[in-house]
């Protein structure tokens, strides 16, 4: 194990490059989770639609994502997409992660939508609102609130999963750490350093999610 003072001095010396990498990790995470939310909402709505085939499509997507390792998905999408059209590495990584996050977020939304009392839909319909209008105005706003804690959790999982983008040469946190570690023959120090940066990011995300939850909780209940 490296000495504590060695750890601290290395941490200070590499601050610049790690902060850049941290920003890239954050960008990758935020983009992939936000796109994942859109994908997830789309597949959640397919799943609860009354058209059976749409439900099956949603099931198939979730099964594909949950049934294969993320690193396999990243490689397939990265090499698959770059073979078909020119796409910046960042977007290849972000979309691969979004595709992955989307499946878990779809399950989060499906659960939260189905947890809303049937009576809410009936009340909306009895007022002459259409099914889709009631979904949009009545059900989804409530479902989003309920989805927030698991979404926050998914954000943290997505943050850590983004380390796999190192394998398609994104200079995010994990890649920088392993590269510097092997260049300096000092892997352990850099692994400990990168752990600190992940912990900082998770702490920030946790605080932000808690703030949003508190803000929403104030308006009702």
């Amino acid at each position: 194990m490296p000495s504590f003072s060695h750890f601290l001095s290395t941490l200070a010396d590499t601050k610049g490059v790690f902060i850049d990498a941290m920003l890239l990790t954050l960008k990758l995470t935020v983009v992939s989770v936000l796109v994942g939310i859109v994908i997830g909402l789309f597949f959640a709505l397919l799943k609860i639609s009354r058209v059976k085939i749409l439900g099956w499509i949603s099931d198939a997507y979730v099964y594909l994502v949950r049934g294969t390792p993320l690193i396999v998905q990243i490689f397939i999408l990265y090499f698959g997409m770059s073979g078909i059209f020119l796409i910046p590495d960042f977007w290849a990584a972000a979309l691969a992660l979004a595709f992955h996050n989307g499946a878990y977020i779809a399950e989060i939304f499906r659960g939260s939508i189905q947890s809303i009392d049937q009576g809410q839909m009936e009340a909306g319909r009895s007022l002459g609102m259409s099914r889709s209008l009631t979904m949009r105005r009545i059900i989804l706003p409530q479902a989003f609130r309920r989805a927030l804690p698991p979404l926050g959790n998914q954000f943290i999982i997505g943050l850590k999963d983004s380390s796999l983008a190192a394998f398609i040469s994104m200079n995010e946190l994990f890649n920088v750490a392993t590269t510097l570690g092997s260049n300096n023959f000092d892997e352990m120090t850099f692994l400990l350093i990168v752990a600190v940066y992940y912990l900082i990011l998770v702490a920030i995300l946790t605080i932000v999610v808690n703030l949003i939850e508190k803000r929403l909780a104030k308006s009702d209940r």
Binding site: D117, G119, Q120, E122, A123, G124, R125, S126, L127, G128, M129, S130, I138, P141, Q142, R145, S219, D220, R221
Partner: peptide
Amino acid sequence: INEVRQKVGMVFQHFYLFPH
């Protein structure tokens, strides 16, 4: 049906107000 329902209001046992 959405138009017909506008003529027929409904009140439920469990209210079903929109909590948000």
